[in-house]
Design a protein around this nucleic acid. Structure first.
Length: 549
RNA sequence: GGCCCGUUGGUGAAGUGGUUCAACACACAUGCCUUUCACGCAUGCAUUCAUGGGUUCAAAUCCCGUACGGGUCACCA
């Protein structure tokens, strides 16, 4: 029996014409330096922080070089299938403004010339290559049951030998065509394994863009390439897809580095040019003094939706990702505040080779800085969008008081050194609630500081309203009047004055303004009181003061 | 257990043999500024680069061992 006949017996009705696909998916018409990358998740319905990180880098690398970034869905494991799993991924990417040039755009549709972009629809392609490999004598069927494999494993463990299907443990490799024919005709189930040409004693060196040169023993395992359901394993699909889709750079998590010998070998024996590899270290998290991989089960911040819920601007998350992606980015950005992420040239060499700890504090800091340089209207828009998704009460307030809210956000903003109050949209409400009557209700907890006597407070408020407050005053006049008020009541006009002779005064102008602030907002910490008063207006000030009195 | 990778302050890190080499940023602390807060400014925070040994006139930087951490060893990706 020839290899050709064997191939027909094993994969009847499948073509082995690989030239068909080689022609169908020609080399991409791109410049030499253009990078083609892909994000290739399983359709689990959501994107993990680590994957977002990878896809972010993939897209950036492609964009920087006028290349292509595409989305391929790896659904060869049917047990993992999740309903609407693709849509969830597309949405998460969309939320982070990661758009694709090619690939899946909905649960079932793809766009681009190199599709299908979902592996379950590429079954014929894989099988064609598998059949070709059988014809070439580079692959063979394996009839071993799970139990038999397990037995071998135990033997190997006991003898302290390497575990796996290789060398003399690869029993089906030695099956004669006649054996195979008999087994197939008897209806024995089988899978297809790759006939590894490697030897464990040979060393190979693989270059990784992040980790550098890595030396491995050559792969000598006869890996499964086609599973009993007719779908390929990851390794095989990777070789076929990235070859046919002409991926130039495979960027993925470093859990894959140990498979590198397999992948390199697969590409080589298939006659494909291997892509460049960049293996990213996982994003770590510290817990109880120990580092561990950020886990989607244990860590809410591992889910990309977390940032959406918190209302951290997408741009801020991207800035943070870039600071861990390229170690020189942070300083570059510091010196180029007017530029954007697009202006920064991503460099594979500047990827840290050890796992970065995910630093939420740093993220919030970046976000806070980012928001502080936004225009008031942009803050409004961001807060409004966030509230529309997560806080309808706040959304209504923002709608009803649009002008007011924008003016509020504009206090001490749009200047060289703006205020930095908000690190994310979800916390804005808790910082400005007292500015809205809708929220300024119920039991108010007044945070008075040095002056707490009700009588005294009342007399300060009364006098201020009756004699001093004029909404038309400019800031200087306003503040001078507060000083007048202070001296009227026996307080020092200046803090210094008070500090020099504390016995001569009941307190100082700062104490007075604190009373005015707290009685108006209940809070001891607010933005500039002059601005706050102006915004609230005389009626509301009178109302709140008299309510207190 | 085999194979592979990593280890610079509380955190992210710069730095790959030698002119302040432990930069910069976050966090923290103190002080100044200030009617509060925030901002800003100033100062402090690793005599030391996991650890032991070696190479060298000279090492965080090169080599070897040890420890610790991570990854992987499926008809999962």
């Amino acid at each position: 029996m020839t290899n050709k006949e064997l191939a027909d017996l094993l994969l009847p009705g499948v073509s082995s014409d690989i030239e068909f696909y080689e022609k169908k998916y020609p080399k991409r018409n791109l410049s030499e330096k253009a990078i083609v990358t892909r994000f290739a998740p399983s359709p689990t319905g959501f994107v993990h922080m680590g994957s977002l990180f990878a896809s972010f880098i993939e897209k950036k690398a492609a964009n920087d070089t006028d290349g292509v970034f595409y989305l391929r869905i790896e659904d060869t494991d049917q047990k993992r299938e999740v309903e609407n799993g693709v849509t969830g991924i597309i949405n998460d990417l969309k939320n982070f403004d990661i758009t694709i040039d090619e690939g899946m755009i909905s649960e079932t549709e793809g766009k681009g010339e190199y599709g299908p972009y979902i592996q379950s629809e590429r079954k014929e392609i894989y099988q064609t290559y598998v059949k070709h490999l059988i014809e070439e004598g580079l692959a063979y069927p394996c009839f071993c049951s799970h139990e038999e494999i397990e037995e071998t494993r135990q033997i190997q463990e006991k003898r302290k030998q390497r575990i796996g299907y290789y060398g003399r443990f690869a029993v089906c490799r030695r099956l004669t065509p006649e054996d195979i024919k008999a087994k197939v005709e008897a209806g024995e189930p089988y899978i297809i394994r790759f006939k590894s040409p490697g030897s464990f004693d040979n060393k190979i060196k693989v270059h990784d863009l992040v980790k550098g040169d890595i030396e491995f023993p050559e792969n000598d395992m006869d890996l499964v390439i086609l599973k009993s359901d007719g779908l390929p394993t990851y390794h095989f699909a990777h070789a076929i897809d990235d070859h046919l889709m002409h991926t130039t750079h495979v960027i993925r998590g470093d859990e894959w580095v140990s498979s590198l010998p397999i992948h390199v070998q697969l590409f080589k024996t298939l006659g494909f040019e291997a892509p460049k590899y960049a293996h990213l270290s996982p994003i770590m998290k510290e817990e109880d003094g120990k580092k561990r991989k950020l886990s989607k089960r244990k860590d809410p911040e591992a889910a990309v939706s977390y940032y959406h819920e918190k209302g951290i601007p997408v741009e801020a998350v991207k800035l943070y990702l870039m600071t861990i992606a390229n170690t020189n980015f942070e300083q570059w950005y510091d010196c180029n505040k007017d530029k954007t992420l697009d202006d920064f040239k991503f460099d594979f060499k500047k990827i840290s080779s050890s796992g970065a700890l995910f630093d939420v504090d740093k993220l919030y800091n970046i976000s806070k800085n980012y928001i502080s340089y936004l225009k008031a209207t942009e803050v409004y828009d961001g807060a409004y969008t966030w509230a529309s998704n997560y806080d309808l009460e706040f959304k209504k307030i923002l709608e009803d008081h649009k002008e007011f809210a924008i003016n509020l956000f504009n206090i001490e903003r749009e200047q060289k050194k703006p205020r930095k109050d908000y690190s994310c949209y979800s916390e804005i409400k808790s910082l400005i609630w007292y500015m809205f009557d809708e929220l300024y209700t119920g039991d108010i907890n007044y945070e008075f500081q040095s002056i707490t006597d009700k009588e005294e407070i009342s007399s300060i408020l009364k006098l201020y309203i009756e004699k001093y407050y004029d909404i038309n005053d400019d800031k200087e006049t306003w503040f001078n009047k507060m000083k007048d008020l202070a001296s009227d009541l026996g307080y020092a006009r200046e803090v210094k004055e008070y500090k020099e002779n504390p016995d001569n005064f009941k307190g100082h102008v700062g104490d007075i303004s604190m009373v005015l602030r707290v009685a108006l907002t209940s809070k001891s910490m607010t933005p500039d009181l002059y601005e706050i008063m102006k915004l609230l207006g005389i009626d509301k000030i009178k109302e709140r003061y008299s309510k207190f009195i």
